[in-house]
Amino acid sequence: MTLPLLPGLVERTGVGSVADVESHTGWITGVYTLALFLFAPAWGALADRIDRRWVLAAGLAGSSVALWALTAPFSMRGLYAVRAIAGLTSAAVLPAIFAYVVTASAPSRLQRRFAWIASATALGFLLGPALGDGLAGPTRASAGGDSGLASLPLDVVAIVGLLAAVGVLGLPPNRSIAPSPGSARSADERRIVRSLLFTAVVVLAITVAEVGVTLAARRAPAAGPVSLYFALCSGVMIAVQFWALPRLERRLGEPRLVVAALGGLSAGLCLLALSRGGFVTATAFVLAAAGIGVLIPSLAVRISSAAGARQGWAMGRQAAAANLGQAVGAAATGSLFALAPPLPFLIAGGLTALAAGAAAWEGAARRTP
């Protein structure tokens, strides 16, 4: 929700030129993402030491207060600080949620529940920008005076977040379960690192698709509204995670399914390099979204199964890897797109194809006695 509002919030600090507004918007977004990257592993490690409800409640409450603070008039330094605090506190949420679910779930249900988390995240990404887009006009108008129209929805969302933080404390207690001395299972660090690399590549790829299509739409508005492609992407992801993922896993097995999903994501990216909007772009987004819908929960399960008792630490590292992929993907897409529009899609598609090959090799190695 915040990203479409940022240009108006930057203008409210007194920045005059369009170039400065765009530059600060990008840097403020980068500060938020950097805070997520830096602090997610630390929050995850804390979630392994104390009741995970407290970590989750702290993340929800802190991010809600930071969102609420955006309604106040800030200098540019204050705006940077508020977004950094928002990233620091938001970094606690996903590691604590994943670690809580691992401890509270039977292993056979973990894949489905991780898919639910991924679907909830996709739904938030679908609804948030649409809401923020609707508020962007009133926020820009508020730079000249009254900010009531913009502040009321931020107040409501912040209050909902604070209520959620209180509600989390009503859940059953949840702590890391240390294995008994005779059955201790240490973390498989090599498998975790490979899965973290796959996570970074996957998130980089979908970021390239989203940013690249957005830039292409600015050059050729007749290609179609970008919001429809993003809505299609989120819808396909949710459908795959709720309905198709369990059936595909039973039919193909998890290793082959991951390879096929990486291949589909690579094909979608390469198709985006050739498309000019319309049906071809929609098809590319369907391929990419189907791959993402499989990969996000499947890689989370891989990391969880290899993490032993350090679930929060491992899931925090996955959140950090995802944020790193997002930051690199967003930064690289703009530069590469300026050189040649198909270039970011082709490079991301190639990286994803290499990841598919590595996943296939890993699966073959694990099957070899």
Rank of each mutant, 00 (worst) to 15 (best):
3 L>N: 11
3 L>F: 13
4 P>D: 02
10 V>E: 06
12 R>A: 12
13 T>W: 01
14 G>K: 10
16 G>E: 12
21 V>G: 06
22 E>F: 04
23 S>I: 15
28 I>W: 07
32 Y>N: 10
34 L>Y: 07
37 F>Q: 09
44 G>T: 06
49 R>M: 07
49 R>K: 09
49 R>G: 11
51 D>F: 04
53 R>G: 06
55 V>E: 12
60 L>D: 05
65 V>P: 01
78 G>Q: 03
81 A>Y: 08
83 R>T: 09
84 A>W: 07
88 L>P: 01
95 P>F: 07
102 V>K: 01
103 T>V: 08
103 T>I: 13
104 A>T: 12
108 S>W: 13
110 L>F: 13
110 L>P: 04
110 L>W: 14
112 R>I: 13
112 R>H: 11
113 R>I: 15
114 F>T: 05
118 A>V: 02
119 S>K: 01
122 A>F: 03
125 F>Y: 12
127 L>S: 12
127 L>C: 14
130 A>M: 12
133 D>H: 14
139 T>C: 05
141 A>K: 05
150 A>F: 13
151 S>C: 12
154 L>D: 03
155 D>C: 15
156 V>P: 03
158 A>I: 10
159 I>W: 02
167 G>Y: 03
188 D>V: 14
201 V>I: 14
205 A>V: 09
213 V>W: 00
214 T>I: 11
216 A>L: 10
225 P>A: 10
228 L>G: 09
229 Y>H: 10
231 A>H: 06
236 V>I: 11
238 I>V: 12
241 Q>F: 03
242 F>C: 15
242 F>S: 09
259 V>P: 00
268 G>S: 10
269 L>S: 03
271 L>R: 04
278 G>F: 04
286 V>E: 00
287 L>N: 05
291 G>S: 01
293 G>F: 01
298 S>K: 00
303 I>W: 06
306 A>I: 06
311 Q>V: 14
315 M>L: 06
317 R>V: 07
324 L>A: 06
326 Q>L: 07
328 V>D: 01
328 V>M: 06
329 G>K: 00
332 A>H: 07
333 T>C: 05
337 F>I: 12
337 F>Q: 06
348 A>H: 00
360 A>Y: 11
366 R>H: 09
